[in-house]
Design a protein around this nucleic acid. Sequence first.
DNA 1: CGGGGCTCCTGTGCGC
DNA 2: TGCGCACAGGAGCCCC
Length: 268
Amino acid sequence: MPELPEVETIRRGLEKKILGKRVNKVEINTDRMVKEPSPKRFKEEVEGKKFTQVIRRGKYLILGLSSGKKIVVHLRMTGQLIYGNKDGKNRVSFLLSNSKYLNLKDSRHLGEIRLVKNWERISSLAKMGMEPLEDSFTLKLFGGMLNKKKAKIKPLLMNQEFLAGVGNIYAQEALFKAGIHPEKQAYRLKRDQMKSLFSEIKKVLNRAIEYKGTSLASYVDADGRKGSFHSRLRVYGRGGEPCVKCKTPLKFIKIAGRGTTFCPKCQK
DNA sequence: CGGGGCTCCTGTGCGC
DNA sequence: TGCGCACAGGAGCCCC
């Protein structure tokens, strides 16, 4: 479900709502989503602590607690983290000191939640690539990264060890904007294509954050509201429709098992 | 190293 | 209308 812009939108919402609030009670209804420690210890160690920070790294949310430990959440495909009232379908819910709830929902329960001392040591986070919206992510670095890779550009962009937070929607959108074929091998990109892709990645992610994310099926922000970037999508979910630039029907193919839509004329 | 296939799950939408 | 199948925004694993 959520990629960087959706997770960032949730982060911003949560920061306003839960910072400084204490967790009075934790209720765990789906044990398997709590990866560490045991559900029992998770509950014991979180109850009574205050939320002190809300960080995003890639598609992960990291909720700092007054004990120094962090709750680390990955929403995967259908996870939602919503601040509000109690309702029946929560995998995990936190009753806060103001009598509101922070509810983790997830119809497919592929999501993960854990309590750790050092989030940087979780292996997927330890290996995670650069944050595309940070100033430290430069064209020079990006070019160097691309030149080392023979992989197809689209799955490469989605590889979290290569770049943090880009998923199936925004990889396709950025490649369309940059006019690059999703199966092009990374090291074969021309200098100007690298430059264009670099700026389109930043642009599409920033724009999607402005629109509070893309809501296709289940994504909602921390207040349970849908994002509106859906209307701005140019290729994702538009297979067969005319390209907005040249009217050629958009093509839908599978690359590394993931659905991919692109314009066969505009993207080379 | 790259990539294909499978897995974890449930919900939805499509074609017959 | 009903049924079965393909597919879904993610990502780890095994295998070649």
